[in-house]
Nucleic acid binder design. Sequence first.
DNA 1: GCCGGGCGTGACAGCGCTAACATATCGACA
DNA 2: TGTCGATATGTTAGCGCTGTCACGCCCGGC
Lengths: 340, 340
Amino acid sequence: MSGTRARSRGAGGRPRIEDVAALAGTTAITVSRTLRQPQKVAPETRRRVLEAVETLGYIPNLSASALASRRSGIMALVVPTIANSVFAETVDGFSEVAGRAGLQILLGQGTYSPEAEHRLLTALAGRQPDALARIGVVRRPETRALLQRTRIPMAETWDLTQDPIDLVVGFSNRAAGLAMTRHLVARGRRRIAFIGSDDDRAAARRHGYEEALAEAGLQPAAPAIRVQEISYGAGRRALRALLQLAPEVDAAFCANDVLAVGALLECRSFGVSVPDRLAVAGLGDLEIAQELSPALTTVRIPSRAIGARAAELLLARVAGEPVDQRIVDLGFEIVERESA
Amino acid sequence: MSGTRARSRGAGGRPRIEDVAALAGTTAITVSRTLRQPQKVAPETRRRVLEAVETLGYIPNLSASALASRRSGIMALVVPTIANSVFAETVDGFSEVAGRAGLQILLGQGTYSPEAEHRLLTALAGRQPDALARIGVVRRPETRALLQRTRIPMAETWDLTQDPIDLVVGFSNRAAGLAMTRHLVARGRRRIAFIGSDDDRAAARRHGYEEALAEAGLQPAAPAIRVQEISYGAGRRALRALLQLAPEVDAAFCANDVLAVGALLECRSFGVSVPDRLAVAGLGDLEIAQELSPALTTVRIPSRAIGARAAELLLARVAGEPVDQRIVDLGFEIVERESA
DNA sequence: GCCGGGCGTGACAGCGCTAACATATCGACA
DNA sequence: TGTCGATATGTTAGCGCTGTCACGCCCGGC
């Protein structure tokens, strides 16, 4: 039934499903089935179809497929940045699970400003992803409302909240900050400073830090040092600033391992003995943390598991299976090494 | 003209362009124009349409848009892995340029086996991306043919070839290996070993290394050490293996900075003095390379520029502008620091 | 007063695929 | 032999959007 369709090829010059059908002596729907549910097609027909696919170099148009089936086969993932290693494992875990399920990953980068993020998420949602994951919790009410309305299964990660848009998979950043600071206190540190970037997760870690100090009746050794970017250099500069601001400081708790490694390196450059004179602690347990000497005391985060688990839960949602637990706490673990 | 369309909302419960049109008292095409070419719509109409969009929380279905317009607004990017930092800058540069142009990024991970990659690329191509970039050069003839047939603008990166599928943006890995090895020879090293992963780019670097050795009339200090993964730990183990295999070695050229940093750390752990007893060189110039001490001598690769440039050229291709240079060599630079 | 052209808007058809339903075929079984 | 059900394939009607062309209106120039 070609009707108005005289061409044997789509305008892009690429073969369409109908061309394959014609060559195989069958119809579009059978080709479609052969490709998606081969067991429903007779072996001989299947053979002919696959041969035609091969001959023509047919590649199904997934936009058309998505439109017709209302399943895009895409999972969107929004990360603050991929320029540093902090989230790499999470992306990797997510990508692996999604990939095994045959889903592709649409990557959104940047959660700098709530407005920019709103635009990004709108654009991503327009692609009708089967699911959406984001590093961090979405705060902006308009954005939350938007995502809720779309009904797209969604996972917030790397933090916890009592009120996720849909699911949340992570750990308590506050509790992690609290635990590490308690550890420092328990090790006899009294003049503890905080170095962190300027995002929600770092803020939560700082709150935990402040809580632990209050518990112990201590004051921050200095106002929290804020860095603009997460890099080794930023960690170095932050530590230098800290030492000028509060020469008496005896511990630096860094909001992540990249900053902590930078701080550690700065200490070595300037002969500040770690941990004798200054304890340095991080968060994340990147591979480099255990390889340096002194090895970095840090909080181990199940980064890969966060990504993998989020993807699994989302897949379950997509498959229509009930997800009994909307808030998944994967915890953390203090890893005591040499630096604190 | 609703005809068979009785619903006022799509089956997903999401508003469609027609719902917006109805609310704004106009038709679908005007809504479409308002959103894509606002200057072609009268201010008053535009106002009403945007108000309706806002009210309904309308998000255009980009699959339908892609199908109708034959432009997906997607750029696909294939990387070997995102679990290590080596390609992070490239992805970031690519993502930034693409993002500015309003394109989304479809991320494909894994080029392990040519077969798996073929499947991955087929799946990505099915999404009708406006352009496709890949880290590394595609070797498999079937895959090359496939990509060529699709006519999707395509950039291979991080290497050079005389015969790109479409464009190639990178540097000569062979030349980089050659240059660094010559540098080591010029510094008086005579028993030089190579440590590398098992991919095309590492192989090219090794060829350069071998060429430089031959030039100088030298033999490899040991058979090239192959690592299975790129990690600090793998670098450490490789160096340990090397020292057992060839205790007399006086230089280790590592195919990338992650391995080199691992090697450097292993030297420090075991009291191997760098560079006195052993020179260590890397490739990539990751941030950590300059922060360690001894600071790593390495080859600086314009990683971010590779991604950004590839994206720019692809955008030009998409816009139908002529691209005069199909082979873009962004070069490299030996960065001499303390380790070699 | 008529014509040409620019501007804003709309009707129509179709992008390439698949869900849902319909039909054909065949063997088993009463 | 007729019926039923399982299996294989086909028909129809869109999915939600945009390219293309057509139309109506208003203005200025002659």
